[in-house]
Design a protein around this nucleic acid. Structure first.
Length: 308
DNA sequence: AAAGCGTGGAA
DNA sequence: TTTCCAAGCTT
């Protein structure tokens, strides 16, 4: 019936709705308690890269207790850092976070930088994390575009079920155009849109009934159509290098001593439920890759451990 | 620029 | 059971 495109929603309306919702509904997360310094924010942002909040929280608390400053982490052995990372996944992030701490001490007087450019120069810090830390730790006006922001804007503004597979220039423009001009408000907006995407405007099972944008959402107005894009490529898992690498590191995480190659490979394949006859060669290759990446260290006698 | 990189919970 | 996906980064 409606052949006439609905007028674009004024950004002021988006701001008012989302900020009001956020003030009332925001989750109490430890790195948002107002006492957390820039280091704590950086640690949280790196841990949150591709890892859900619920899994990050306890690890972040223990981490901040143990390494309350960049200098403290910089002085730690890489292996201990990988061990403390636990099962958050992508343990290279732990290595890079430690390298970032080293760079902060060496190049920035031990203080986490407050500009996006300087933050981008730190290992493991990309466009999202730099913008997030500059905003949430230093109160700067940045354009924070994460998967939540992309989904909210794709739906509310563009009327699509989900954002494109990769960040597009158009998306960045839309995001930039919605960030309030005032620095203090921009920070609240950035965190509020992310929160909305995480809590209500979820990838699966969006809670539109509770959303402050229901009546102005382009996607809802269009009848909440299903995604029309190409089907997503799910990550293969069983028998992949990724699974085997994870299993190898996990074996080493569980022991403080070095482990003979046979024992390491055998235990990893066992926990991965893979046939040693079929995956032995692949596992050896994965082990070499882990050594190459600095996640595993070979020691005398054909043994391996987390790097000292 | 597409692919590789962990993990576990929910649907 | 399988699939999807979660505050991305790097090469």
């Amino acid at each position: 019936m409606s052949g006439v495109p609905r007028a674009a929603v004024p950004v002021a309306v988006l701001h008012e709705r989302v900020l009001t919702w956020f003030d009332a509904q925001k989750r109490a997360l430890p790195w948002r308690d107002g006492r957390t310094d820039a280091w704590g924010v950086l640690v949280s942002e790196v841990m949150l890269q591709q890892t859900p909040v619920v899994r990050v929280e306890p690890v972040w608390r223990a981490w901040m207790e143990r390494w309350p400053t960049p200098a403290a982490l910089a002085a730690e052995a890489p292996g201990e850092v990988v061990r403390a990372w636990g099962r958050l996944g992508y343990p290279r992030r732990a290595l890079r976070l430690r390298e970032a701490a080293v760079a902060v001490v060496r190049d920035h007087g031990g203080r986490v930088p407050d500009t996006e450019d300087a933050l981008r120069g730190l290992p493991g810090v990309g466009a999202y994390t730099a913008a997030a830390v500059a905003a949430f730790a230093h109160g700067r006006r940045t354009v924070v575009v994460d998967t939540n922001v992309r989904r909210v804007l794709a739906r509310a503004v563009q009327g699509r079920a989900q954002a494109a597979p990769a960040l597009t220039a158009a998306e960045t423009r839309v995001a930039a155009a919605t960030v309030p001009a005032d620095a203090a408000t921009s920070v609240r907006w950035n965190v509020a849109v992310m929160e909305l995407g995480a809590v209500l405007c979820r990838a699966r099972g969006p809670r539109c009934a509770q959303c402050p944008l229901v009546d102005v959402c382009a996607w809802v107005a269009a009848g909440s159509p299903a995604d029309d894009g190409p089907p997503r490529r799910g990550q293969a898992w069983h028998g992949t290098d990724r699974q085997i690498r994870g299993a190898l590191v996990q074996v080493l995480r569980e022991t403080s001593r070095s482990v003979p190659r046979e024992h390491l490979v055998g235990r990893a394949l066992e926990s991965a439920r893979l046939d040693p006859a079929r995956h032995r060669e692949q596992t050896d290759r994965c082990l070499a890759g882990l050594v190459e990446d600095g996640l595993v260290e070979p020691v005398r006698g054909g043994r391996f451990r987390l790097p000292a």
